[in-house]
């Protein structure tokens, strides 16, 4: 085979399409992931994230479009693609009947490692992922978080240059989620390129260098987390009053200064006010002091990705009312 030309792009995909019957789950998505970056694909349930990833990983045939990974054509050379990409699917893909170390040993053997080498790597990975004490336990007995970590470990056996993570923290409790983030950051430090999907806005914000927002099979926005936030424009002043009884009075002051009433938040004495310019925060605080109202806390925040999503798509990311039409008919 002729050598693959050097390219800066880990993933280059254009016009990806996947149809299930007549439902277009992925409807012409372009993606460019640069080498060494973490690229986040953000979208609500049923947006087409998994389907996109599966096509790129040769797990689903593409119905349209072109894709290459490090310059290798996905459609024409699936076997080569599988040597370049480590896939951690949305649902743990490890063998329930085998123990942690048996799983990793098997995947190592399948990828051409000698038995001894596969054992060493399995042991190292289990230790690195905090699974050493579960080494000889069948996966059946693993918790959800342990499964996900083992699954991630399994995709790293051959040290692939590109790693796909499909919703790596969905279903994990906050602590385990934080651990998973830490693990992913380590991968990034080791120089891997990562393509991850998530429905959590803060996760994309925390981990990704660039984000593509997809909705109903279509890419609706792309950029760095900051660019996306700035595109929404304003920032938010979050206030909490020391005395909840003063909330109404304070809201009145804020409305006088900004010309628009703040939104009261569920916690006692809390409110959020939209700012067109972050300096307006000072005006509000001075006015509150002059009225003798005392604040417990005040923060100025750039908009969250949730607000970005709202602004771009017109509906909230957590809003699941447009659940995939297909699911009902299946």
């Amino acid at each position: 085979m002729t050598p693959v030309p050097d390219t800066d792009l880990a993933v280059a995909a254009s016009g990806l399409v996947k149809t299930f019957d007549d439902f277009r789950a992925v409807d012409g998505i372009d993606l460019e992931v640069r080498r060494g970056e973490v690229f986040g694909v953000l979208g609500p349930n049923g947006a087409g994230k998994t389907t996109t990833l599966k096509m790129l990983a040769t797990l689903l045939p593409m119905d349209g479009g072109e894709a290459s990974i490090f310059g290798v054509d996905v459609r024409r050379h699936p076997h080569m693609i599988r040597q370049l990409v480590g896939v951690t699917g949305q649902y743990a893909s490890v063998d329930e009947n085998l123990t942690g170390s048996e799983n990793l040993w098997l995947f190592g053997r399948l990828q051409g490692l000698s038995s001894a080498r596969a054992k060493v790597i399995a042991k190292d990975l289990l230790e690195r992922f905090g699974l050493a004490e579960a080494r000889d336990k069948q996966i059946k007995t693993f918790s959800g978080g342990m499964r996900r970590r083992l699954d991630l470990a399994a995709s790293l056996i051959s040290q692939p240059p590109l790693i796909f993570l499909d919703e790596p923290t969905t279903g994990l409790d906050p602590r385990t989620r934080g651990q998973m983030w830490e693990t992913i950051r380590e991968l990034i430090r080791d120089g891997s390129t990562v393509l991850l999907t998530t429905q959590y806005l803060d996760e994309a914000d925390q981990l990704a260098d660039r984000i593509a927002v997809i909705d109903r099979g279509i890419k609706v926005a792309e950029g760095t987390p900051d660019e996306l936030k700035t595109s929404v424009g304003s920032s938010t002043l979050q206030l909490r009053m020391s005395d909840p009884d003063e909330t109404v009075g304070a809201a009145d002051v804020v409305r006088r200064v900004l010309g628009e009433a703040p939104v009261l938040t569920p916690e006692a004495g809390g409110m959020n006010a939209a700012l067109t310019d972050a300096n307006q925060a000072a005006d509000v605080l001075i006015a509150l002091r002059q009225s003798g109202l005392s604040i417990a806390s005040a923060t100025v925040q750039k908009p969250t990705l949730d607000e970005v999503f709202m602004a771009i798509t017109g509906h909230s990311a957590e809003d699941e009312t447009h659940e995939p039409q297909m699911e009902a008919s299946r």
Binding site: T58, M80, R82, Q83, V87, Y91, A92, V94, F107, Q111
Partner: peptide
């Protein structure tokens, strides 16, 4: 139908294995 077959499919192994 089990998850582990997704991994087998994603690994560079002969489809007959």
């Amino acid at each position: 139908d089990k998850g582990v077959f997704d991994r087998f499919k994603s690994l560079p192994i002969a489809r007959i294995a």
